[in-house]
């Protein structure tokens, strides 16, 4: 690069400035706006808005949904990544493709699918009604929709990592007499721990922030089936700007925490991932 010449320096400065300006306009300014709107009527109003029973219920529901969906998808993601990277089987590429499905389908459509399946007029509707079970417009529906939307995160994070690591350490442990479960706990899991945490973090952020799919199956019953994103929309539509932005600020905080943890992990995780400085294999 012509980093010495003055024109090179100008060009570099201009590029960096454009990148920062872009980020400022599209990311930082809205973030600041969220907090300033939330605090527009003072700290008192902010605290009151968050202390509303409906707001608290929304926060609780969001935490509950995430607390169910994230562990489920962590387990599923681990199992799927393990199967895909350590074994050969028929239908492997189909499974890999299916994992990506939620990324390519609009969340609204995935919500609709659950309504069509489990709603009153849906495929399983009469059966569920006969047994007094309620899925759509109730918490189970919210969980299902969230699980669907967030299931690629952990698997997607782990598959390339585990592919790169291969199976040779597991084989070494196997020859040394370790059982399958022990190999998983002592060899596989420690090797992927940072990647796994990172995937869980992204999965959690999405689980708490999901709007589209959840909105379709929720039914918008205040204090019962409204998660934070849904509650924010409801408040905003009801012209309660401070209330809406107060709850929104919580989600924004979650995003910031996720971001900080993510970059922490990335530094950490790069070290873990740094392939052992081995000489190339002589063939």
């Amino acid at each position: 690069m012509a980093s010495d010449s003055s024109s090179g320096r100008v060009r570099r400065f201009a590029l960096i400035a454009v990148a920062f300006l872009y980020l400022a306009i599209f990311l930082v300014v809205p973030l600041i706006a969220v907090f300033s709107e939330a605090l527009a009527k003072g700290l008192e109003a902010y605290r009151d808005a968050l202390a509303q029973p409906d707001a608290l219920a929304a926060v609780k529901l969001t935490l509950l949904v995430a607390a169910i969906a994230v562990p489920l998808n962590t387990a599923f993601g681990l199992a799927a990544a393990w199967a895909i990277t350590k074994f050969e089987f028929a239908g492997k590429s189909l499974l890999t493709t299916l994992i990506d499905l939620p990324f390519s389908v609009s969340p609204v459509i995935s919500g609709m699918v659950y309504v069509l399946l489990f709603g009153a007029q849906g495929l399983f509707g009469p059966f569920l009604a006969a047994h007094g079970l309620k899925i759509v417009f109730a918490v189970p529906g919210l969980v299902l929709a969230t699980v669907f939307v967030t299931f690629p995160f952990v698997a997607r994070q782990l598959i390339p990592l585990m592919q790169q690591q291969g199976t040779v350490e597991e084989e070494a442990a196997l020859v040394l007499g370790a059982s399958g479960w022990r190999i998983f706990r002592k060899i596989t899991l420690p090797n992927i721990r940072w990647g796994l945490l990172y995937g869980v973090l992204l999965c959690n952020a999405r689980a708490m922030g999901e709007f589209g799919a959840v909105s379709v199956v929720s039914g918008h019953i205040r204090g019962v089936t409204e998660t934070m994103p849904l509650h924010i929309e409801a408040l905003y539509n009801g012209y309660d700007v401070v209330g809406a932005f107060s709850v929104a600020s919580l989600l924004a905080l979650l995003a910031l925490v996720t971001l900080v943890l993510k970059s922490l992990f990335e530094t950490r995780y790069r070290e873990e991932l740094a392939p052992m400085a081995q000489p190339a294999r002589v063939v």
């Binding site: 350490e169 070494a172 060899i187 090797n191 081995q278 294999r281």
Partner: peptide, 10 residues
């Protein structure tokens, strides 16, 4: 068993 690239537990 000694593996080609040693397969040490990193």
């Amino acid at each position: 068993f000694v593996f080609q690239n040693y397969a040490l537990f990193r």
